[in-house]
Design a protein around this nucleic acid. Structure first.
Lengths: 146, 146
DNA sequence: TTTATGTAGTTGCATAAACAACTATATGCC
DNA sequence: GGCATATAGTTGTTTATGCAACTACATAAA
């Protein structure tokens, strides 16, 4: 029997990622309550651009673990919200460089604070040591499957 | 500073649930390769009904951590695929009891095997002890936020 | 220079999720 | 019984995902 064979009763929660879904919903709710009017998917793109402005769409695909059509459409929506701008690269005309607008900058501090707060809500009663191991496991799972 | 304050660099992966997404995609891919022609969301409903046939839609909502419209539409699709049937309850006419069809039964063994296989792929190189702790953390997160 | 091949991004289509508003039925209280 | 309230399920609308097919541009080899 393989090392990590799951008992049936334990399988469902792991596969469906209930914890991640719960975190996502809570973050969205916290955004809404605080008047941050973006989706968490849009936020995940902004988050990458706050780390490094001017990424290409393909770089955003890799960074956010989304496919190209998903990024195309998230950027369509973010452009309509005037939070990012597509700028055609001069070096390589296939590439769009994505830049944050000043309006996006106004969202950074508040949304990052809400994200941290949400994680603290999520991790009430969990020790730092447990969190470290959980992160290692999830990272390993991601590496195994990506 | 709160006990589990996240460093920024660690925040993203946890919030976006990259590991869960990776598992979901791999399971869907494994289904497809094996000729199991359902979505993982549909599978998650069948999974609950294999544990207990004849649940109400509300019970399926609770069991799968989805809202009512999501279950309504998943069941619409599952009915079109002839995998489940809605049966109005005689006791309470608001309630639909959901029953598996024989066609659904044919999917059970194969799909459960693929789910277990997928988890084993995901957890390569992770010890049982680490998995136990990760499960505890994720369960706690779920309990904190649900 | 032409041709083949690869890469970046978009579009079409089907499925699913989140939220609000809605219908129908049940329950509890006067 | 009649009314208020709660519960079960559906529908509409917007956003996002997954996959395949497509266009445009770049690169490298003949």
């Amino acid at each position: 029997m393989p090392n990590n064979q799951f008992k049936k009763s334990e399988l469902y929660s792991f596969i469906t990622g209930k914890a991640s879904i719960a975190i996502a919903r809570r973050l969205q709710k916290n955004f809404k309550q605080a008047g941050v009017e973006i989706t968490i998917e849009q936020w995940s793109v902004l988050y990458q651009l706050w780390k490094e402005d001017g990424m290409s769409q393909q770089q955003l695909c890799d960074a956010t673990f989304r496919d190209k059509p998903s990024i195309t459409r998230l950027l369509d929506n973010l452009e309509r919200l005037k939070l990012v701008k597509r700028v055609a690269s001069k070096d390589d005309r296939r590439i769009n460089m994505i830049y944050l607008t000043p309006e996006a900058g106004e969202l950074q501090e508040k949304s990052m604070e809400l994200a941290n707060q949400t994680l603290n809500e999520a991790l009430q009663g969990v020790t730092n040591g447990q969190v470290e191991i959980a992160k290692e496991v999830l990272q390993r799972v991601y590496e195994n499957l990506k």
